[in-house]
Design a protein around this nucleic acid. Structure first.
Lengths: 92, 92
DNA sequence: GTGGGCACTATCCTGGCGGTAAGCGATCTC
DNA sequence: GAGATCGCTTACCGCCAGGATAGTGCCCAC
């Protein structure tokens, strides 16, 4: 449970589930999240082995985040929860 | 997500998944939880329609909590998460 | 040369979650 | 009558997750 605790962690996981993302793109995909929170959550997810951080040493700083195997599995395990939410909270 | 946020809520749901329970029994099933937290979480779960509270007017106070339909569905939706946890955190 | 985008980091601040402890009102036990 | 059981409620406190804001170093566009 600790792995997904944090206000935005599940959202990050879901956003990343659609494909690898850069920091700024993630931020834009998650309206309302602050950079600090995104950065710290990303770091925790990385520490827990759910995402990988790939840094590209180019003139323009570029970092890509993507789900690891366990991260993808976690996302799948989270899917029923999303379905449940849609069914019982949104869909009546 | 708000429905399962709270340090002990998932544990309560799982405990209740094994059958209806009285307050004191729940407390004993969840070592470390305080009465205040159990009571407030139970109240939130009730408000969110996940559990029912049945009060029996006997000489000895008796209250039973049980999962509602959505509560049971939530529990099921939480199962994959439990499996994932066992697989990736405990089972290597 | 001024401004903006990039990916952060640092600092400060606040709310509220959760822990501790105590009380209550009836009854049953020793 | 002291203590325990039962299901809470109330009051208080501490901590820290998370929000707001600003700064950094490099490069590009205007």
């Amino acid at each position: 449970m600790g792995v997904i605790e944090g206000k935005w962690k599940v959202s990050i996981l879901w956003a990343l589930g659609e494909g690898a993302c850069r920091f700024g793109r993630l931020r834009r995909m998650l309206p309302g999240i602050t950079e600090k929170v995104l950065a710290s959550h990303l770091r925790e997810l990385e520490r827990d082995g759910m995402v990988t951080r790939e840094e590209f040493a180019e003139t323009v700083p570029k970092v890509e985040y993507s789900l690891t195997g366990p991260g993808i599995a976690l996302n799948r395990a989270l899917e029923p929860l999303g379905d449940w939410g849609k069914r019982h909270l949104l869909g009546g």
